[in-house]
Design a protein around this nucleic acid. Sequence first.
DNA 1: AAAACTGTAACTATAATGGTTACAAAAGTC
DNA 2: GACTTTTGTAACCATTATAGTTACAGTTTT
Lengths: 175, 175
Amino acid sequence: MSTNSRFAVAVHVLTLMAWSGDEPLKSDQVAESVNTNPVVIRRMLCELAEAGLVVSQTGSLGGSRLAQDPAETTLLDIYKALECQGVFSLHRQPPSPDCPVGVNIETVLGDVLEEVDSAVEQVLAQISINDVVQRLKPCGETTVDKKRHHKNEQVSLPEIRVSARSRRAKAYRTA
Amino acid sequence: MSTNSRFAVAVHVLTLMAWSGDEPLKSDQVAESVNTNPVVIRRMLCELAEAGLVVSQTGSLGGSRLAQDPAETTLLDIYKALECQGVFSLHRQPPSPDCPVGVNIETVLGDVLEEVDSAVEQVLAQISINDVVQRLKPCGETTVDKKRHHKNEQVSLPEIRVSARSRRAKAYRTA
DNA sequence: AAAACTGTAACTATAATGGTTACAAAAGTC
DNA sequence: GACTTTTGTAACCATTATAGTTACAGTTTT
């Protein structure tokens, strides 16, 4: 529903900080791990700082670190800090008020949206940054070695991301 | 998370068809209720037809109607028909493989995404088009009358939708 | 044949996100 | 106090998805 990696990046950033403990990270370092521009990171750090999730310092020994115990910060806190909009949106233009369906559909859809969002939040509330760090560790031990053993293994190809509409159009033509 | 009203519109469209029973609806009629262009509707109807949710007919008495009992079509069917992408996306550019966090974060986030999506699907699977029609009916009876009683009531103002980034920026300045 | 539809291509418009450059302000170092 | 490093932030451009629009070929009924 969303072509928006902000949440993924934010989790990545906070996980990095949890990983490196009290050592404040510079936006350049973070940007290198995330593979993006430092300004993109700093923009996001401002939002996370506003929400009280990180603390930043200017100056030559500056950088950012977690504002609290990574066991206390949940993915829901991050989700809310970014003001993610919800799983889907309602009509851009209000539907016709002259149609019995149009006049009330937004109310019903709003209720559905609330139910869905609440389900999402329930899941996110149960995962802390600490959990993410824990889940991270088991992967790291094996992934690198495995690749050396299987020469013909599928190597990480440069991923080409096709737009949704062209994917749909193609599916239709070949159907 | 999404500025995408496709799902809302699709539910609206199928609800209209359930409302009008066997009578096939023309894209013009639907577009009027949804308050958009007929081609936008026809594009979406193609996707819904591919998924087996509606049936369309060309020709002078043509139009579209539901392919099955509205009690059998769930919001999850619609969600899947539109190939909605999931609640959030992973990194656009793959993170650094040289960082212990970067190399594995996508795996972990992928798992989280699956958990979240599954929660969403569970909610959507339990709501049918029929349910939407039912939820619609009670609203219609009261909404119109209420407005006439309170003259100073908040009238539906033209909604100005501010972009997320400017909203965030403003919040920061005034903080 | 004429009329009324859908299906679909080919555009344009709008908006959100991401990327980039630039620079003021803050904080440490010499 | 000048110099250096780094954040905060504005002001752009680039990319992408959705929405809206025009146009027209193909279908079906009359």
